[in-house]
Design a protein around this nucleic acid. Structure first.
Length: 132
DNA sequence: TTGTTGACCTCTT
DNA sequence: CAAGAGGCCAACA
């Protein structure tokens, strides 16, 4: 389960402007920006974030971003991100593994069987409250 | 440099 | 309805 692997923040985690002027900031950094703005007491999913950033099929990358999020500052509320079904798939990656559930509980989000209760009500869509 | 591995999602059998 | 496969792309061995 928790392999306790050390993961470094992506080398291109900082805003980066390419000579071609094509790309502005890295995918990872965009993910962090979105996650940081998740309102307290709300949750969202990997896929939605990916889709919001224009990488619909890159939900896995959001997962990787979360994996490295612990090494990134300012801190990212990774516990507010769950999978499509509202399940705490990343729970095992927290230290301790119970931390994710605890943090959510503190924010009035009930968790049962590794799943967020009333997920649809707590769900937060970046496309709604965020204007890019 | 190539191959494997994901905190996922969706479409297809 | 359940299970499998493909796709995405960065990090690692």
């Amino acid at each position: 389960m928790p392999k306790a692997k050390k993961i470094q923040a992506p080398t291109n985690a900082l805003p980066k402007i390419l000579p071609s002027g094509k790309s502005d900031i890295s995918f990872f950094e965009q993910v962090y920006d979105v996650v940081r703005q998740i309102p307290k007491g709300r949750v969202t999913s990997y896929g939605v974030i990916a889709a919001f950033l224009g990488a619909k099929s890159s939900a896995r990358m959001v997962g990787w971003a979360m994996n490295a999020s612990f090494t990134v500052r300012p801190k990212v509320p990774a516990h507010r991100v769950v999978n499509r079904n509202g399940m705490l798939s990343g729970k095992a990656h927290f230290v301790p593994p119970t931390l994710m559930e605890e943090l959510l509980t503190k924010e009035n989000i009930k968790v049962e069987n590794n799943r967020v209760v009333d997920f649809e009500k707590k769900f937060w869509d970046p496309a709604i409250d965020l204007n890019f």
